[in-house]
Design a protein around this nucleic acid. Sequence first.
DNA 1: ACCATCCGTGGACGCCATCGACCTCAACCT
DNA 2: AGGTTGAGGTCGATGGCGTCCACGGATGGT
Lengths: 152, 152
Amino acid sequence: MDAIDLNLVDLLRNNARLSYAELARQVGLSAPAVHERVGKLETSGVLRGYRADVEPEAVGLGVTALIGIVEDSGADTDDVLAAFRNMPEIESCYFMAGVESFLLKARVGTIAELEQLIVRLNRTPGVASTRTSIALSTKWENRPQPVSPPAA
Amino acid sequence: MDAIDLNLVDLLRNNARLSYAELARQVGLSAPAVHERVGKLETSGVLRGYRADVEPEAVGLGVTALIGIVEDSGADTDDVLAAFRNMPEIESCYFMAGVESFLLKARVGTIAELEQLIVRLNRTPGVASTRTSIALSTKWENRPQPVSPPAA
DNA sequence: ACCATCCGTGGACGCCATCGACCTCAACCT
DNA sequence: AGGTTGAGGTCGATGGCGTCCACGGATGGT
């Protein structure tokens, strides 16, 4: 992970569809060299994948909610996690310090669907209680923060 | 936005670096047709961009926190937002229903940097109080949820 | 029935991805 | 010191891809 790798990561974070040739131009190496570096960043796990950033409303997911979860005292955290993993509406899942063990970010199409999700969460074994906050609007999300100050 | 468009969106959400030729094979059209469709999805704002998904620890951002913000009674929300926008550590910013007007997701390298961020937030004009929860681990994040059930 | 429009296909051409051969340099061993 | 080794780069070649263009078939309005 030298400065060129960080530069590549940065470029791909801002536009994952850049060609290797273009990346090569930007970092001042040849295309095969960049190809090999990116390959190593992928296999080493630094680059986990490439995702299109989609306007949620456009695909019928206009409701965003953040849900805190309090676990039962004797709950098996792995089982709870597995249950959450089977709910596709849960886009993100953080294991938190504090009374609420989990913080979930969920995205659904309607308030009715959110209600159904909350009911399912409360029925999940190991879940003691849920606390849901609705996002009125998303100002921004997953903004990539610059990782390499010296962009040559 | 027909079924083929949804299919394309789905494919690009899971791998934004797929070639047009490959996309064409998967949806059963020619490459130029796919090229044009994707172009329209981009200009219409459905596809906002393409991002590499980076392991945060690998780029020195091992600490994730979620921060609730209570605004002053007379605060100018736009000014507060602008201040947040200038803090690159804030990766996501939701405007919420409830006492806490904003929910921020921030990512920093160390607890010390988190402390500095919280101090800066509390000093920001319009911010009455902050409530920070630290994520001990991220189970998953921004998992794309399937948007087109019939992947014919 | 006609025409305009939309959306697709197929062909062409230049650029890109990717492989292999070779080069350079630094580290290390003897 | 000199030789060896390995990592990581360049260059050149080739097959596939991106992208432009001309063309064609369905659809809907008049």
